[in-house]
Computed example of a mutant assay.
Amino acid sequence: MNPMPAEGRAPLPLLDTDVLRTFVAIAESGSFTRAARQVFRTPSALSMQIKRLEETLGQSLFVREARRVRLTPEGELLLGYGRRLLSLNEEAVTQFLAPSLEGRVSLGTTDDVGARTLPGILAQFARSHPAVEVNVVVGSSREMLARLDAGELDLVVCTAGTQDPSMPVEWVHSEPLVWAGREGGMAAQRSPLPVALAHQGCPWRQAALDALDHAGLSYRIAYTCEHCAGQEAAMLADLAVAPFPLGLVRPPLRRIDGGALPPLGDYQLALARRQGLGDAGEALATRVVEAFGTASG
C-alpha cells in the first residue's frame, strides 16, 4: 500500500524487493552475467530491471565497462539502503513464519564454496535461526565425506563424483569448469604448458589431466595445491594456468578462450546429509539448496 501523499504531492514510489535483490547481486558480483546465475534469470531480464529502477530513481546506478560493472556514487548509496531493506524484510517475514529452532549443526564444505557462497548462507541462516550454532569445517570433498560417514558432520557440500555411489546426495549446482590464467599473462603460451592443480583425487585435477592427455598437448604440473587459493596464487603470478569454476574467474584472472586448450566439461556440487538429521540441520540444508538454486541432476 502506497504511503498517503502530502496534500498536493504525488506519492513516492516503493522499491520492489525483487528488484533490490537483483541490484545487490549485480553490485556484489560486479557482473550482470554472474548475478543472473545467482538469481536464476537471464542477463537481459536483469538489465530491464535495473533500467526501470534507474528510471524510478532518476539516477544512473552502474557504469558499464568492458569486463565488469561498477557502482556510481548514487549506486553506492543505494547499495547500503538495499542491503538494510532486504535484511529487514527477511527479519519481518521470519518473525511470523519461521519456527523457533535451537541446537548445533556441523557443516563441511570445500574452500571454493567457502570463498563465495558460504558467507551469504551463514548470514541468512543466522538471521532466520539465531539460536542455532553452526560449526563450519573446510577441507577436501573426500575428507568431509569421510567425516560425515563417521558421524562428525551433519551436512557436506562436496564436489559431485567424489562421494561413494551408494551415498544419497542432492545435486545443488552446476557451472562450466574452464581454463583460467592471468589477464595479459604468458603462461598459456608456454610449452610445455605449466598447470596448477589441486590435490590427488580432486575432480578438477582429473578433468584437466584427462583433457590434456586426450588432446595430446605437452604440459607439466608446475604447482600442486591443497586449496584453490594456491592455484589462484600461481595464476596471479602468471606462473601457470589452472582448471577453475567459471564463477571463480574474476579480474585480474580471465577465462582462456579461443580453443587453445581442450574443454573441461561441467563442475557440479552436491549436498550430502547425515542420517537422522534433525530439524536444525534440515533448516540449514534448505538454506544451502536455496542459495544454489533449483537442484540439477
Rank of each mutant, 00 (worst) to 15 (best):
A211D: 05
L239K: 12
S296V: 15
C228D: 02
E143S: 13
L236H: 09
Q95E: 14
E90Q: 10
A180W: 10
L46N: 05
R182E: 03
A126S: 14
R287N: 05
K51V: 03
P43V: 08
R274E: 10
C225T: 12
T42M: 09
A92F: 13
E152R: 11
L284F: 07
A291I: 04
G75E: 01
R41W: 04
F244P: 05
L46H: 07
L284W: 08
P13G: 06
A229H: 13
V113H: 07
Q200H: 14
L197F: 03
A98H: 09
L177K: 02
S60V: 05
H129A: 02
L118G: 00
L71D: 03
T110W: 08
N2I: 11
S191Y: 08
P43C: 08
V178W: 00
L46T: 04
A126W: 05
T109V: 13
D16Y: 06
L148C: 04
C158A: 15
F244Q: 09
V156H: 02
L107D: 06
M167F: 02
R64F: 01
R104K: 15
L122M: 12
D111S: 14
V136D: 04
G247F: 01
V172I: 15
E143Y: 06
P130R: 10
L271E: 00
R182S: 04
G278H: 09
